[in-house]
Design a protein around this nucleic acid. Structure first.
Lengths: 155, 155
DNA sequence: TACGATCGACAACGTGGTTGTCCAAACAGT
DNA sequence: ACTGTTTGGACAACCACGTTGTCGATCGTA
């Protein structure tokens, strides 16, 4: 029984491989839908900005990085036309970062593609297997929420 | 049925959260065992070096990065005392990168910790559940091998 | 009104990746 | 045995992405 068990180091590698496979497929598909220059980090950042917009400092807090780092990422996103900075009418210090129509489109497309990818897993593994995989992982990850602070990790 | 399904974007987040949880626990435990300054990237790099050692170019190929990037990482690893460069007797151009006893120890400890972490998952989820999770992931990741080229990705 | 907290900007720096150039050594073909 | 092509490693410039620290302007509150 124990002899049939794979070594423990396979588990994290498999989890990462699964994650990476999905993210790679997402961006390949995103590229064919008019968003060739969205990178994984940008997707997470736009998710942190949300539909209502947020200040740079707030984005940093949500991503778990400094406001300076968040500001730089916002700069790149702005250069690509995915977000825009507008003055916050309620706070003269603050500038609100908002998704442009292009940014909103990429988020909507991403959500739709993720649904398709999950459907592909269901088609191959069966709905029960995928649901059980998800519930197993939910049980093992400590935080109640999801890790939005993916950038900044790896160091 | 379909209404009970979570949105597709949860799946990659859960996979990443699981991976990250394991890696974080590994390094927390590694730190208490005399290896506080091993970072995720270093672990993957030492794995790529292996017990027999390898040239910088070969390490780069295994990690999926340029030989220059591999060289820089080897420099940092060498500064920490985990690897050493020795002249390759069979090739005067080449220098062999070898794990030091300290490097070997960190690799052995990591393998042992990963086994314990997997055992913890088995204790919580049951052996069947963990095995089924692993086999599901094996079925969905395209490459036969494991992704050693984790650094260099994320961009 | 004055004081502390927070906003965004700017600078310096560390890490980890990329190209490109260069020389010396290895190798393969004639 | 000579010659041309590959290859290994060093060096430099650069980009992406993160960090701290500092600063002036603004906000909120005592």
């Amino acid at each position: 029984m124990a002899s049939a068990d794979p070594p423990g180091w396979e588990l994290p590698l498999l989890l990462f491989a699964g994650f990476r496979t999905l993210i790679d497929q997402l961006h390949a598909e995103l590229a064919t839908r008019g968003h060739p220059d969205v990178r994984p980090v940008y997707g997470f950042t736009m998710q942190a900005i949300g539909f209502d917009g947020a200040s740079t400092s707030e984005i940093g807090r949500r991503l778990g990085v400094s406001k300076q780092a968040a500001g730089k990422t916002v700069d790149r996103l702005a250069a690509l036309g995915y977000v825009e900075r507008v003055d916050d009418p309620r706070d003269a210090r603050s500038k609100l970062v908002r998704l442009t129509p292009r940014g909103l489109d990429s988020l909507r497309q991403a959500a739709e593609i993720f649904d398709r990818l999950r459907a592909a897993w269901v088609a191959q593994l069966g709905a029960d297997q995928v649901r059980s995989l998800e519930s197993s992982l939910r049980a093992m990850v400590p935080g109640a929420g999801y890790p939005v602070d993916v950038p900044g990790w790896f160091g």
